[in-house]
Design a protein around this nucleic acid. Structure first.
Length: 890
DNA sequence: TAACTCACG
DNA sequence: ACGTACGTGAGTTAA
């Protein structure tokens, strides 16, 4: 590193701004014990680590602006005028950012009357001359004017650590300009953020054309006489002085009186002690842990991993493996992608006590020695993602029998909002740094590939095994502290095996049925297409909201109901309002509906039918913030049902054997029943105990009726919306939206509702207060969701957190209940000796296939198991149906 | 990759 | 004065 002359120059102010605003929504979470905001300091530190690691510089300098008065403001009074003041939450952090740099051993510098840019420009020139490679880091694209073959400019684009690197070639590609021409561009067009005007009526396009022809502003004016008469020429002549002045303002100085030698910017590396002291002061706990985990006293830019000895396995070596019942065993199976039903096997790693083994060839797992190890019911194995491991091993004919600690699952339970699937990232969240992320080792997206080098690859596998093993005690202790042991041992861990069975079973799809639908839809779509083109008077892409917006609101001049960030909204609720104004609307709605069915369901499903004629979804067990499952590849939890046309898609879901049927059971109103239970509201509980129509019951209360016969269909519809609103965490706006009333009317409904159900009202207040106190809410089975925004000063964030506090215990407890039912169900089917198989879960319903002869038994058994999953203060209610296809189970 | 739209509970 | 219903996944367009 030392012989490489690499200079890193950082625009301190600009990066601090970026860091501050990137973490602005978490401003209140970044406050240290002294009340100092620390988000910009934190972000600055992340950016430093990233760039130091990428560049490995020999020299570093961070430049700051010295103050408001500069030679530019002296020359042009309005320079940077109209900028809003730096928030105090940020300005208070600047002194500490300088302290941070001191702790890193990094030189920082500022110069009266000059901006950070000019210091950087000057140092760049000096460093280039002395033969350095230069990297500049900034949030300000203007600095790209400094790019040369020796100097790269890294501009932060998103967050703090994502950067875009500008080389001269990239500048040309992106702007169509040489780096040196950027100042000519700015001279012509001006810069609204720096508040200087440029030439009248000259924008980016005109400027580009001019510079292409004349190269520079000087070039333009040398040739101006020859230009033919035009408004542009007039403007150029009138604004000549402005153009030159603006160019001068935009030009970064390379000759500022910087009294700093290159030698003074040499970077010796950070001192662990100094950093520790600083991080203590800032309360940066994870950085402290990260530091303590690293072994050396000198902190280099790249965090160093421990060196592990990994023995490559082959058939002979497998025979020598030695373990017993008390051995500490971790196992990790590496796959080429997420879809473990079909992914290629990349290999595996195995840890027995403190010995590490790895191999690329998974056929080795079929050898008796290894197969027995995995299938021994008396041998506990620690894993990361047990479900994935089980399903993939099943493809090799191996059944993993006794999972002890599942790092992914436990980590999710500890914090349902942290839903990283990557072992390396997840470990970092638990202050463990001795493992890299897959992206770091394998690359991402299309570039992801298994390392060619055995040593490198096997070390990564070994570090993953080590992380699983090292984190077990700590995480299990946290689980116990949270009273979540039962949730893990009794619900989530056994559930992962139930889900594995369901995923492996898959559900049979009638391909011919879908083929028929596809050609039928195709025909109808092209008819609708023609009609729409006729009515519009031209061809356009109906699928493009942008093009459709132009047709509807500009060409046909229909009234604009709602706008989105980028243009006109063409969503269903908008189109509904335009119905009747033009026949095109009905056709567009019909087209949309059909196009959705065609692309997402008919074609989407056809694409994922496996060789066995079935679709095998994957349930993500560690994703949702509430504890629900989700379903991917394909998503079988959103197959159409509400509209008849779409519902027919369900005709394609059929049993996998002749003379079998589909059987489905669903919990009726489970979320409202859960609410009745946890809120202890007597009226709501009574309604469920009496098995009343709950929406009609609510209607009677909010409309003040005495008899169910007085409830009209419309009243019931509105009451149903109110019930939904209550479950979601009430807001008058949302309710008004959903029932199409005024906000005032909605507010009255809500108030009447809360007065009629005092227990519910009390619950809403209590749960919000409890969330504020504890920082989290919990479900019936202690599933936990943290709500840091509940204390936010931002109204929106806080309101969102409050609604979440009301909703999560309801949605999450319902999720808990069906999970218990599923575990009991699998056991009950087995105990009853039935062939029936549980195939799908859709939040409050379970779908099975079974021999026709077993259907009567299921009608008894399934509701019984679902009802008794948990004892609430109100009864649960389950409804069942069966038929030849999923469509018929209604 | 983000934005929009729409399918489900 | 603000700008929202809760929880998901997938296809399309357009940058």
């Amino acid at each position: 590193m030392a012989e490489d002359k690499k200079m890193l120059l950082v625009d301190g102010n600009s990066v601090a701004f970026r860091a501050f605003f990137a973490l602005h929504n978490q401003l209140e979470r970044f406050v240290n014990h002294a009340g100092l905001h620390t988000n910009a300091i934190y972000g600055f530190k992340l950016m430093l680590d990233k760039i130091l690691g990428d560049v490995l510089p020999s020299n570093v300098l961070v430049a700051f602006d010295a103050g408001k008065v500069t030679f530019r403001t002296k020359a042009y009074a309005d320079y940077k005028g109209g900028r809003s003041k730096t928030p105090t939450e940020l300005s208070e952090q600047f002194p500490y950012i300088r302290e941070l740099l001191d702790a890193y051993g990094i030189k920082h510098y500022e110069l009266p009357e000059y901006e950070a840019d000019d210091i950087i420009g000057t140092m760049t020139a000096q460093a280039e001359k002395a033969g350095y490679q230069v990297t500049i880091v900034t949030g300000d694209r203007d600095l790209t004017q400094l790019t040369t073959d020796k100097t790269t400019v890294a501009v932060t684009i998103k967050g703090v650590t994502e950067i875009e690197e500008y080389t001269p070639a990239h500048v040309i590609e992106k702007y169509g300009l040489q780096p040196a021409q950027i100042v000519d561009m700015k001279g012509l067009t001006g810069d609204s953020s720096d508040n200087y005007p440029g030439v009248t009526k000259v924008g980016e396009k005109t400027a580009l054309k001019l510079l292409k022809q004349y190269d520079t502003i000087e070039g333009i004016y040398e040739n101006i006489e020859a230009m033919k008469k035009s408004k542009l020429k007039e403007n150029l002549i009138n604004d000549k002085e402005i153009a030159f002045q603006c160019k001068d303002l935009a030009t970064i100085r390379k000759d500022a009186p910087v009294d700093l030698t290159l030698a003074q910017t040499a970077w010796p590396g950070a001192k662990k002690e100094d950093l520790l002291k600083f991080f203590e002061e800032m309360d940066f706990k994870s950085f402290i842990a990260q530091l303590q985990a690293s072994s050396t006293a000198d902190v280099s830019a790249e965090p160093t991993l421990s060196k592990l000895k990994v023995e490559p396995l082959d058939a002979a070596k497998v025979e020598t493996l030695d373990y017993d019942k008390d051995s500490d065993i971790s196992f990790y199976l590496e796959l080429s992608n997420d879809n473990y039903h079909t992914a290629d096997f990349w290999g595996f790693g195995l840890k027995i006590d403190d010995r590490y083994y790895a191999a690329r060839d998974v056929e080795l797992l079929k050898l008796p020695k290894l197969k027995q190890l995995l299938e021994d019911p008396a041998l506990e194995v620690d894993v990361f993602d047990g479900k994935q491991t089980c399903v993939a091993l099943e493809r090799l004919g191996i059944e993993l029998k006794n999972i002890n600690f599942d790092l992914l699952l436990v980590s999710y339970l500890l914090n349902t909002s942290d839903n990283s699937n990557d072992l390396g990232n997840l470990a970092k969240r638990h202050d463990y740094f001795d493992v890299e992320t897959d992206e770091e080792v394998y690359g991402k997206g299309a570039k992801r590939k298994v390392p060619a080098d055995d040593a490198l690859y096997f070390e990564h596998l070994a570090h993953k095994l080590k992380a699983i093993s090292d984190l077990e005690d700590k995480l299990m202790k946290e689980l116990a502290e949270n009273e979540q042991e039962d949730l893990y041992f009794e619900i989530e861990r056994p559930l992962s095996l139930v889900l594995a069975q369901m995923e492996i079973s898959g559900i049979k799809v009638d391909r011919e049925r879908l083929d028929i639908m596809q050609s039928e839809f195709k025909e109808r779509l092209s008819e609708l297409e023609q009609q729409i083109y006729n009515e519009a008077g031209e061809k356009f892409n109906i699928n493009s909201p942008k093009q459709l917006g132009v047709i509807l609101f500009e060409k046909l001049k229909l009234p604009v109901v709602k706008k989105t960030k980028t243009g006109y909204s063409t969503a269903v609720d908008v189109l509904e309002k335009l119905r009747g104004m033009s026949p095109i609307i009905d056709n567009i709605l019909a087209y949309r509906q059909l196009a959705k069915l065609q692309s997402t369901y008919v074609e989407g499903l056809l694409k994922v039918i496996a060789a066995d004629g079935k679709v095998h979804t994957r349930y993500t067990q560690t994703l949702t913030a509430t504890g629900r499952l989700s379903s991917v590849d394909p998503n079988l939890q959103n197959i159409p049902v509400r509209l008849e046309e779409g519902r027919k898609i369900r005709q394609a879901f059929v049993p996998s054997h002749p003379d079998w049927e589909i059987f489905a059971s669903d919990y009726s109103q489970i979320e409202l029943r859960v609410l009745a239970h946890i809120s202890k509201d007597p009226h709501m509980q009574q309604a469920f105990k009496d098995d009343f129509d709950i929406h009609a019951n609510t209607a009677m209360r909010i409309f003040g009726l005495d008899d169910p016969s007085e409830v009209t269909a419309n009243m019931r519809r509105q009451a149903k919306a109110v019930n939904f609103g209550i479950v979601y965490g009430i807001s008058d706006f949302g309710l008004a939206q959903s029932i199409g009333s005024t906000r005032k009317q909605a507010k009255e409904f809500m108030e009447t509702y809360l007065a009629s159900f005092p227990g519910v009202h009390q619950y809403m207040q209590d749960i919000i207060e409890s969330a504020r106190q504890k920082g989290y809410v919990e479900t019936l089975f202690h599933r936990r969701r943290y709500l840091p925004d509940i204390k936010s000063k931002n109204y929106n964030l806080r309101s969102f957190a409050e609604r979440t506090a009301m909703n999560t215990p309801i949605q999450g407890s319902a999720a808990d209940i069906i999970k218990v039912a599923m575990i009991n169900m699998q056991q009950a089917l087995k105990d009853a000796g039935l062939e029936a198989k549980m195939l799908l879960q859709v939040h409050d319903e379970l779908i099975f296939e079974a021999p026709k002869a077993e259907i009567p038994k299921l009608k008894e058994l399934v509701p019984k198991i679902m009802d008794s999953a948990v004892e609430l203060s109100v009864p649960l209610k389950v409804e069942s149906a069966s038929g030849k296809t999923w469509f018929e189970t209604k």
